[in-house]
Design a protein around this nucleic acid. Structure first.
Lengths: 249, 249
DNA sequence: CAAGTTTCGAGAGCAGTGCTCTTGACTTCT
DNA sequence: AGAAGTCAAGAGCACTGCTCTCGAAACTTG
């Protein structure tokens, strides 16, 4: 409590970093990996409490019983730490979507879509600050490095996978009043995604994609406050509509 | 350049606050109102440069040639300044939507909707940080005071106004597979909005509402990066879809 | 095994932040 | 004219991100 001016902390000697003898690909590297993970974990914990804007490098250092400058051996800056958290968040959401998709019979397209949609919303509600980190307003000077895009596309890939299976199995893409510029771009995007989704169907996918995250964001960011309380019912209703639009029924 | 440690600044004597003699409803009150506006203006300016998270009270004070503590005479905290900016942003967007709506013949529902949608997107693109302030992730500890809801609903009122006019003029609300809980709530919401919009139509309005801001947010927050470049075409395409869903054609 | 190199944690320090409190000058009301 | 209220300024506190240096470990090489 006393002793100001300098950084002190009752060290919690959990994993003292030298109780472990050598061997196995370098002790240093292993300890480093562990500490990196611990820092991220503590940061994630603090993120859930105070949000990204107030995430303090010094505070996570304090919680780990180390001094703030030591953290800079693992993350060159606060932004770099945040980037790591962003990638982790994308991966966590992506994994959630993937496992939800895998839990339903491949032929049950409607069931798969519904499961994935619910999983996305559920994850967002359970990790609001991590969701805000990836789908909220980007932090000011920050530009997402390309490392994030791979992690970011996992969730989208699950969604387009369902679309591709739907198109392959039978029904698919009727209407074709797609403006030329959009059409060619969606064609490129379709092949780039590897999937077999024709532009008109992919366009509907975009609508659903934006609508779905729009709905989750509205709920999480307080835009439905004093507007709709029956959020579960609303989302299920929206799910039905998206399923109808994608002709997954 | 020299002289550290204390807050100094070459005072820009614009509006010296005592070059004006008495009269007219209190000089003090007028000067106070002007200075309040100037602070907000400077803050808005800084907001556009560095974003909300890095908005510094000291910096806006510096820009106005005053000392930071003086600003606290006008805004009790940084959050209070931000709240003022949020309300202003809601009002700016609402005014934009209203004037767009007013610029089209009342009977031309599709034209009105299209104009309002474009106005919303245009305003967002022109004021990304202000848009992020109101439709992005909320700042951590912050809870929107009820002052904001009036300003926030202006835009929604324009949209529901179009819906109400559409319902009154003729066509409207067919499908009725609305779950009971949602139905009753939308009924309440409908009357609360004063408009004459039956629940099924209002439900579609919600879908469009969330979809529209979802689309604008995705574009502004970088989610379409490396996905869709033809943003204009995409938004117009979405507009068509929403118009179809609302049967405004 | 010993010498040299790299990596690490600690500490001090800088510039910046939000916010508080006090002080003295000024305006406004009685 | 005196009392009451309002204001900008300054000093200061606790905090932040980040840099730099230093000594002690951990590795690598001879």
């Amino acid at each position: 409590m006393a002793a100001p001016a300098t950084e002190i902390e009752a060290a919690q000697p959990e994993v003292p970093a030298q109780g472990r003898t050598g061997r196995a690909g370098g002790v240093r590297a292993r300890v480093r990996a562990e500490l990196t993970a611990e820092i991220k974990e503590a940061a994630r914990c603090q993120l859930a409490e105070v949000g990204a804007a107030d995430l303090s490098l010094r505070a996570v250092a304090r919680e780990l019983g180390m001094v703030s400058s030591a953290v800079y051996r693992y993350f060159a800056s606060r932004d770099e730490l945040l980037t790591a958290l962003i990638i982790d968040a994308y991966n966590a959401l992506g994994a959630e979507a993937e496992s939800a998709d895998a839990g339903v019979a491949r032929a049950d397209l409607e069931g798969r879509f519904r499961a994935v949609g619910r999983a996305i919303r559920r994850w967002g509600l359970a990790h609001p600050y991590e969701y805000a980190l990836i789908y909220g307003s980007p932090v000011p000077g920050y530009v997402a490095p390309d490392d994030t895009i791979a992690a970011a596309s996992r969730t989208s890939l699950v969604l387009t996978g369902i679309l591709a299976d739907g198109h392959a199995s039978a029904l698919g893409a009727p209407g074709a009043e797609l403006p030329e510029a959009l059409r060619t771009e969606l064609e490129r995007l379709g092949t780039q995604l590897g999937g077999d989704v024709p532009p008109p169907l992919l366009a509907r996918g975009l609508t659903v994609w934006m609508g779905m995250f729009g709905a989750v964001s509205f709920e999480l960011f307080g835009q439905l406050h004093n507007v709709v309380d029956e959020r579960d019912a609303l989302f299920e209703f929206e799910l039905d509509r998206w399923i109808g639009l994608l002709e997954l029924r």
